[in-house]
Design a protein around this nucleic acid. Structure first.
Length: 488
RNA sequence: GGCGCGGUACCCAAGUGGUAAGGGAGAGGUCUGCAAAACCUUUAUGCGUCGGUUCGAUUCCGACCCGCGCCUCCA
């Protein structure tokens, strides 16, 4: 089987492949940088990250563009309240977002672009739409898109606007629009608010136009895939289609990829419910980035995911099981030779992972394949039936797995420490529940010391050191291949 | 109201017209100086409820109940 993905436009799971050459041209709606990213945002970004990682593993090239929305009503309002420029205000959150991406092992898209750096392109876009008769200007200098001129309006969100009245001007929001459903392309400046000069006059862009203008600029008039959270289907993406196809007369995007919202503790996340968490909140509560990523990745993107703290604990254990297996394998001292059963199983597991992900990124099933392998190989290892040459294919399978899931490399402590430092610098250290820890070097030194005590059969000393390490969050495990330690 | 998605064990969660993956947790056991890890056994005659189709349905159809999303820029 080859890669199949659900396409919101057709409402079906379709075979996916890039149209022009072997490179996938994809655009993903990025963050609006008015605050720190929350766990819901990151479910979407993790899903897109898994998509791009799997596309690459499937042999495609990538040209992935992500926008940073650094101008919108909320930004302008908040910046004004804090007496900051729009730039100054958005910069801090953009930086935080990039850091959060690293925390979750989200790969950098090939290109990240800011809305405010493409005002010119947007203005020209609107100008052309006006020339073609799809856009009109109102008395105050704002521009709107006339959905009556675009009969296919509603095709993505499956909405029927056929019965809408056209012509009679409706007064909405102080602006004069031909049709209540017409959406803003360009907003005339309001008293005291930030605005930009442009070929179509002063003002600021509507929300939707940035994605059309930037995606077409960097990916062409027709490209392969466009991704975002499910809420963007309407109106955002519907409007992008209308603007873009009105301008070019070509199909804008072939496949629309939408990520389902998550629930937090069984309810829609909202500040009033008290179940609203930024990524940073979770780190400061002591949750590992790898556990967060694992939990977000473990439920297929088309399914609603219930994000709970119990689930987060479970995810941490699951990740640990995989890491334990990997380190057991890596340090094992095995007899020469190979076991054909192992070779076959490794190959089979890779096939299973691949076909699961080919099936609309069924991550839950891919995980099951890996855990099956882990259990069977642990059994063989316990029985002493593993051979030296079995290591490579098993480790290679784990590597394939981690090319997608990216949870095996242990840099959690480092990232959590960074979060704690950030919190201190922002006067939020009080919220932290991170326990004090020690450096790798100190841990190594104590482990060696304990081993010496153990060899001398000084178990009291050895247990005292174990306790000392445990207090620093370090677990020591004795195996027949030597002692290993890990951070809890 | 319109459109759409889902309800599977203690929790999370796959899946199939032929009798329930995987992870976590619990219980018992093996191993172990201790402790972990690992392994073994065990935990849904049952897949929201009620009907229908079928030799057979959790899987298809219908009704109902519940949860969720979009329908005024929330991922």
């Amino acid at each position: 089987m080859s890669l199949h993905l659900y396409n919101t436009l057709s409402g079906k799971v379709e075979e996916f492949s890039p149209a022009t050459d072997n490179t996938v041209r994809m655009y993903a709606c990025g963050p609006t940088v008015y605050d720190y990213g929350h766990i819901g945002n990151f479910r979407t970004f993790v899903a897109v990250d898994i998509l791009r990682r799997f596309l690459r593993q499937s042999g495609f090239g990538l040209n992935h563009v992500m926008n940073i929305t650094d101008v919108d009503d909320k930004i302008i309002r908040n910046a004004a309240q804090q007496e900051k420029s729009v730039d100054e205000y958005t910069k801090q959150y953009e930086e935080a977002f990039l850091e959060d991406m690293q925390t979750l092992n989200l790969e950098r898209p090939e290109k990240m672009v800011r809305a405010t750096e493409h005002i010119e392109e947007m203005a020209r876009f609107i100008q052309k739409l006006e020339e073609k008769g799809f856009a009109y200007k109102t008395e105050d200098g704002s521009y709107y898109f006339s959905i009556a001129k675009f009969p296919e309006y509603g095709k993505l969100s499956k909405k029927d606007f056929g019965g809408m009245e056209v012509g009679a001007r409706v007064d909405v929001d102080e602006y004069e629009k031909d049709n209540a459903r017409d959406f803003a392309l360009w907003k005339a400046p309001k008293e005291g608010e930030a605005f930009w000069e442009s070929p179509i006059g002063p003002g600021r862009p509507g929300w939707h136009i940035e994605c059309s203008a930037m995606s077409i600029k960097y990916l062409g008039e027709s490209f392969d895939l466009h991704a975002g959270g499910e809420d963007l289907t309407f109106p955002h993406h519907e409007n992008e289609i209308a603007q873009s196809e009105a301008l070019t007369g070509k199909q804008f995007v072939h496949l629309w990829f939408h990520v389902r919202f998550l629930l937090v503790e069984g309810k829609k996340m909202s500040k009033s419910e008290g179940n609203f968490f930024t990524l940073r909140d979770l780190l400061l509560k002591g949750h590992k980035p790898s556990a967060i990523r694992y939990l977000l990745a473990s439920v297929p993107y088309t399914r609603q995911l219930n994000f709970t703290f119990a689930g987060l604990e479970q995810a941490a254990h699951s990740v640990q099981r995989l890491r334990d297996f990997k380190s057991r394998l890596s340090m094992a001292n095995l007899p020469a030779g190979k076991n054909q059963v192992v070779q076959d199983l490794a190959a089979h597991t890779q096939l299973q992972m691949r076909s699961s992900l080919d099936d609309d990124l069924n991550t839950a099933q891919a995980l099951a394949a890996v855990f099956d392998m882990v259990r069977e190989m642990n059994t063989l290892a316990d029985r002493g039936e593993l051979r030296q040459d079995d290591k490579a294919p098993l480790l290679a399978t784990l590597e394939k797995f981690d090319e997608i899931f990216a949870v095996l490399g242990d840099d959690d402590t480092e990232k959590m420490t960074r979060a704690m430092e950030w919190a201190k610098a922002h006067g939020k250290a009080g919220e932290s529940s991170l326990t004090a820890t020690i450096s790798d070097e100190d841990a190594e030194r104590l482990v060696t010391e304990r081993n010496n005590a153990k060899k001398a059969r000084d178990f009291a000393r050895s247990d005292a050191i174990r306790k000392q390490l445990a207090d620093a969050g370090i677990v020591v495990e004795d195996t027949k291949d030597g002692t290993r330690w890990k951070r809890k």
